[in-house]
Each structure stands twice: as structure tokens, then as C-alpha cells.
Design a protein around this nucleic acid. Structure first.
Lengths: 194, 194
DNA sequence: TCCAGGCTGGACCGATCGGTCCAGGGAAGG
DNA sequence: CCTTCCCTGGACCGATCGGTCCAGCCTGGA
């Protein structure tokens, strides 16, 4: 292969690069707000290449982008909770981490998968994918909650994500990461990691 | 005037009807996902008419639609809190009301103004409008919180909206109003209105 | 009665949308 | 060295996008 624009930079395939760039664009501008031309330009790839890797076009691309973004977020979650020994610490660490990322990325990017898949109106396929990703995150957090001896870890995890989703929305509206940092307080937890 | 398609039904002006229909469409399909043709069809109005009332086209329309939706939601909020004598009751009543509305409207419609204005990427005008609407709702709720003797009513109101926004998102993902009904529990309040 | 102007109806426009198609480049395998 | 095939590059397409323009209707005021 070997094209221009850093394809084999880290062994990253063209397909991965397209998915990643698409994910970042969808997150910023939404699904309908992002044109294929935007993705092409960001990934530095011609049309034929994109449609080779994603034969069903934009719909495929949305799912792949959501996959990428979901995995990325899952990594952040695991990072935050891995070193935590108490539930409060895990939630606080994650909240602050998300707030920081939000601010570093221009204080506009929302939840990666709701941004990507939700503007895609009543398409059941992408809605189901969204639910699956959210379940994965919830399970991951619930596992940590259980490890730390929380009662009803599933409910804890679900509640945390509800708060995070709300905070993400408010953070975008206010253009500040503060609502995300207020997640622990909303849940009645210690606001800072110990 | 007098056109077809229920213009003077309730003394409603053409402009109002367009704004309302646009609001409902934006809420369901997002800003970029809704075409002017959709709005035209829903409102039963020709192009010339729409552009007479909204000279700046879609951008104007988004702001007007958000106004309409914001006022509508504010009415729901006032309704829910008007008869409440305790904070818990107000929040529970509102949560259940929103859950019911969500389910009745096809379990898809999210927050009316974030749906409308957020897909509109980094446009500062609409972001500011979103913030203003949210402030209005927060103030209204804070007023009730103060009336009921809550400490720090502003923080209470802000927290409630954070939870509601998160619940709205989760309700859409799961296609059930349950997350909205779980808002009081998330906030550590009585889950049912007394 | 007639005039003026707000509003409607719809033809029309260029730009951009997502998507198709195929010629050819280039590495891998024989 | 030659064949094979995956992938690239980009020309091209019809549909749809948001938006413009203007003729004419209808109403309220003089």
C-alpha cells in the first residue's frame, strides 16, 4: 500500500484512520452535520478508498466511528477506575478526567456515541448500537463497583452514567467542564479523588 | 389571509404554526436532519411564506422553534411545581410527567432545545440561546425550591436539570421513560409524588 | 371604490449532498 | 518476471439541500 498522509505511522490501517477521523468529526458536528467530504479531507483519503472500506457508506461509517469512540472511552473508564480502591474515588477521577478532556478538546465535544448515532433519527440499527455501547460501559463500571464492595453495583453504574450524560450536555451548553466535575456531588459522593 | 390547513384554527398565526411544527421536527430528527421541505410539508405552507416570516431561513427558524419549545416546557415545569408543597413532590411530579410525555411522543423526542440547537455545531448564537433557555428553566425551578424552603435553591435546580438531561439521553437510548422516572431516586429524593 | 402593502404560492437556482464506477498502481506470491 | 488482487485515485452522477425571486391575491384603510 503506502500512500501519503501518515498511513503506516503506527501500523494504523487506512480503515482505522478513517473511522477515527469520522468519530472526531461526528462528535463535533453531529452525524448529519458532517459531510463525507469533511471525512475525506480529515482522513486524507479519496472517495473510492473510503467506499471500499465502508461499502454501505455513511451508515457503516457511523457504526465504525462509534466503535472506535466507544473503545476509546472504555479505555478512559478503565484507566480511571483501575487504580481506585473506593467507589467515590473512581467516580471522582473519571469525572475530572472527562472534564479535562472536554476542555482540552475545545469544550464542545459531547458524548462520542450519542453525538454520532443520535442525529441519525429513528434508525433502529444505530440506536441498538448505541444501547450496546452504553451497556458495555455500564458493565465495566459495575464490575469495578462490585469489586469495591458497593451494594447494587448495576444501579450505581447506571446512575453514574445518567449523571455523566447530563453533565456532558450541560457542559456543552455552558462551555465549561464544571458540570462534569460536579457529577460526584450530584451523586452524593466525595467530590475529589483521595 | 385564510389559507388551507388550519391556519386560524385557534387564532394561531402562520408564523406560530411554522415555528411549532419546526420545533417538533427538530426535536425528532435534529436540526441538520430536518429539511426545509419537511417543515414546509408539516406546516402546510409554501416556501415564500416561510421565508417571509423567517428572512434568515433555517437559522431564524431554529431560534423561533427553540423559543416555542422552551415556552412549552416552561409551562410543563410550572404545572408540575405549582401544586407541590415539597421539593421532593415537585421533582417527582415533573419527572413522571416528562416520562409520560416522552412515551406518548414515540419514545424518541429528547430535550427540545438541545435537539434543536446542538447539532448546529459551533454556532455561538444558537449556543447562547440554548444557555439562555436553560437558565430560564433553572430560575423557574429555583424559585419553587426557594418557596419550599430548600437550602441553595440554585444548586438544587441546576442539579435537577443535570439529572433530567442525563435521563432524557438514557431514555432515548433505551427507548423507555424509566430513566426519567428514576431522576428523583438519583437525587436521593422520594421517588413518587405524595 | 380604489389603493397600498402584507402575505402567499410556486417556479427556479447553484451548491452540496451521498454514492457509483472504473482505470490503474503496487505489493505479494508463484 | 509475471500475474493477481487489494486498494487507491478521482471523474462523474442524480437527488436534495437551503435560498431567491416575483407575480398575484386578499385585506384593511383612505
Amino acid at each position: 500500500m503506502a500512500t501519503l498522509a501518515a498511513p503506516a505511522k503506527t501500523g494504523e490501517t487506512t480503515r482505522e484512520r478513517i473511522a477515527r477521523e469520522a468519530a472526531l468529526l461526528f462528535q463535533r458536528k453531529g452525524f448529519h452535520g458532517t459531510g463525507m467530504a469533511d471525512v475525506l479531507a480529515a482522513a486524507g483519503v479519496p472517495k473510492g478508498s473510503l467506499y471500499h472500506h465502508f461499502p454501505n457508506g455513511k451508515a457503516d461509517l457511523a457504526l465504525a466511528a462509534a466503535d472506535w469512540a466507544s473503545g476509546s472511552l472504555l479505555g478512559i473508564v478503565e484507566d480511571a477506575f483501575a487504580s481506585a480502591t473506593r467507589w467515590d474515588d473512581g467516580v471522582a477521577t473519571l469525572s475530572h478526567k472527562l472534564a479535562k478532556l472536554f476542555e482540552e478538546s475545545g469544550r464542545w465535544a459531547g458524548c462520542p456515541i450519542t453525538s454520532t448515532l443520535f442525529t441519525n433519527e429513528e434508525d433502529e440499527r444505530s440506536r441498538a448500537a448505541t444501547a450496546a455501547h452504553l451497556d458495555r460501559w455500564t458493565e465495566a463500571v459495575a464490575r469495578h463497583a462490585a469489586r469495591m464492595g458497593c451494594d447494587d453495583p448495576a444501579a450505581r453504574a447506571e446512575g453514574m452514567w445518567m449523571a455523566v450524560q447530563g453533565a456532558w450536555t450541560l457542559s456543552r451548553v455552558r462551555r465549561t467542564g464544571d458540570p462534569l466535575r460536579r457529577v460526584p456531588r450530584l451523586l452524593g459522593l466525595a467530590p475529589e479523588p483521595r
